[in-house]
Computed example of a mutant assay.
Amino acid sequence: MALLEIQNLTIDIPTSGGLLHAVRGVSLSLERGKTLAIVGESGSGKSLSSLALMDLLPRRAVRRADALRFNGVDLMCATERQKQDLRGNRMAMIFQEPMTSLNPAFTIGDQLCEVLLRHRKVSRTEARDRAVMLLEKAGITSAGTRLGQYPHQLSGGLRQRVMISMALMCEPDLIIADEPTTALDVTIQAQILRVLRDLQSEFGMAMILITHDLGVVARIADDVGVMYAGRLVETGPAAKVFTTPGHPYTRGLMDCIPTPGRTKPGERLGAIPGQVPNLVEELRGCAFRERCGQSRSACGESFPDLWLADDHRVACLSGQSAENAA
Rank of each mutant, 00 (worst) to 15 (best):
L112H: 08
D110S: 12
R118H: 13
V162F: 02
S165Y: 01
Q153T: 03
M99I: 14
S142Y: 07
A143N: 12
G139K: 14
L117N: 02
M166Q: 13
L102Q: 08
M163T: 13
V132T: 13
A92W: 04
M166G: 02
L184H: 12
T107V: 05
D185S: 11
L134I: 12
Q111S: 10
T182V: 11
H152S: 09
D110Q: 15
D110G: 00
I188T: 14
C113R: 15
P98N: 09
M93V: 13
I140C: 12
L112M: 13
A190Q: 12
E114M: 08
P98F: 12
E97T: 02
I175H: 03
N103V: 11
D85A: 15
L134H: 08
L168R: 00
D185E: 09
Q111L: 11
R90N: 11
L147Y: 10
R120F: 04
C170D: 05
D173V: 03
A167I: 01
M99D: 06
M133T: 10
G109I: 09
S155P: 07
L168F: 10
T125L: 11
I175S: 07
Q160E: 03
D178F: 03
R87V: 02
T100A: 09
N103E: 06
R120I: 05
Q153N: 07
L116Q: 14
R159E: 00
G156I: 10
A190M: 08
L147F: 04
I164H: 00
H152W: 13
C170F: 11
I188H: 06
F95L: 13
T145W: 05
E171K: 14
S142C: 07
G139I: 09
I176A: 07
Q189F: 04
G144L: 02
P172W: 01
L168W: 01
M133C: 06
V162N: 05
L184T: 08
C113Y: 01
Q191W: 06
E97A: 03
T107D: 00
D173Q: 15
E136D: 15
D173R: 11
Q189I: 03
T107G: 08
K137C: 04
N89L: 03
I176P: 03
V115E: 02
F95T: 08
T141K: 14
P98K: 10
T182E: 08
L134G: 11
R128I: 00
R90E: 14
A127N: 06
M91G: 03
G156M: 08
E114D: 14
A143K: 12
R90I: 01
R161D: 04
K137I: 01
Q96D: 13
Q96Y: 11
L168E: 00
L158A: 03
F95D: 09
A167R: 01
Q153E: 15
S123K: 07
K137T: 02
G109H: 12
P98S: 10
G157K: 01
L147K: 05
L147E: 06
Y150A: 02
R159H: 00
G144V: 01
T100S: 15
Q149W: 01
A183E: 06
R146M: 15
M169P: 00
G109D: 11
E114Y: 06
E114T: 09
F95N: 09
E97K: 04
T181A: 05
Q160P: 00
